[in-house]
């Protein structure tokens, strides 16, 4: 059953776009991603299903329980996409407010996390659109540009990155990606969305999404190699 769109402050300022005009995900058309095997129990002693039911009845305690369960994932998503704490906090707040306004229409317990996550992604994308930041250029093609070309001599020492990436330097290098590349990379490689989902969310072609992801990975490879070289040089100094 489609979720009835409700006006929010963030939506009110956004002109209707080709991909995000009806931003609310529906509970039935999103498959669970990384589903857990057992019912989740919240610190308050409620199961997630119970908390959802109570939140649908407007019970304050269950809103907070759901927030505590999902806040890290939503906030991390916002922070990675925006790259700064203030905007990430604002968008986290907006995502949960939208959740609570729409929770009465939610029906599928197993898909709750996915539903919330998709909602948060849409909040971030709408914010980016409002700011006019580049998402994915429709003019991009699958032709590698000179900048992206890897046909250079990369030497024989430490030729590959294998074993050299840790969480900290990966997070740092992702932050250094241009916004459009960062967005595609986060949605596909970190958050696990498929190209057809990304194309739908961002209003671009599937081919364009694939092309941008490839360029993002190439750029990230360069950044990781640079960061590794910098680290090695500082160790030698």
């Amino acid at each position: 059953m489609p979720i009835r769109k409700q006006a929010t402050e963030i939506e009110a300022d956004i002109p209707p776009g080709p991909s995000l005009g009806d931003s609310a995900p529906t509970a039935v058309d999103i498959l669970p991603r990384r589903p857990g095997p057992a019912p989740r129990v919240l610190p308050s002693g409620m199961t997630e299903a119970e908390a959802i039911q109570r939140a649908q009845a407007g019970e304050a305690e269950s809103f907070e329980a759901l927030y505590n369960m999902h806040k890290r994932r939503v906030y991390s998503l916002c922070l990675r996409m925006m790259g700064n704490t203030a905007e990430a906090e604002d968008l986290t707040q907006e995502a949960f407010l939208q959740l609570y306004r729409k929770i009465g229409t939610f029906r599928s317990e197993s898909a709750f996390s996915t539903w919330l996550h998709r909602l948060a992604v849409n909040v971030v994308l709408m914010h980016l659109r409002k700011k006019g930041l580049p998402e994915v250029s429709l003019q991009e093609t699958l032709e590698p540009s000179e900048e992206d070309g890897p046909m250079r001599d990369i030497g024989t020492q430490d030729r590959t990155l294998a074993g050299s990436i840790d969480r900290v330097n990966l997070e740092r290098s992702i932050e250094e990606l241009p916004p459009g590349y960062r967005l595609i990379f986060l949605l596909h490689d970190v958050e696990g969305y498929e190209h057809n989902e990304i194309a739908g969310m961002m209003g671009c072609s599937i081919g364009n999404s694939k092309s941008q992801l490839h360029k993002a990975r190439m750029k990230l490879r360069d950044l990781l190699r640079e960061n590794r070289s910098g680290k090695a040089a500082s160790k030698r100094a």
Partner: peptide
């Protein structure tokens, strides 16, 4: 390298708390 980057990205977990 590209496969390794994609694999490592999947391992990133939400670490930050608001």
């Amino acid at each position: 390298d590209l496969r390794y980057i994609a694999e490592q990205a999947k391992l990133l977990v939400p670490m930050r708390e608001p």
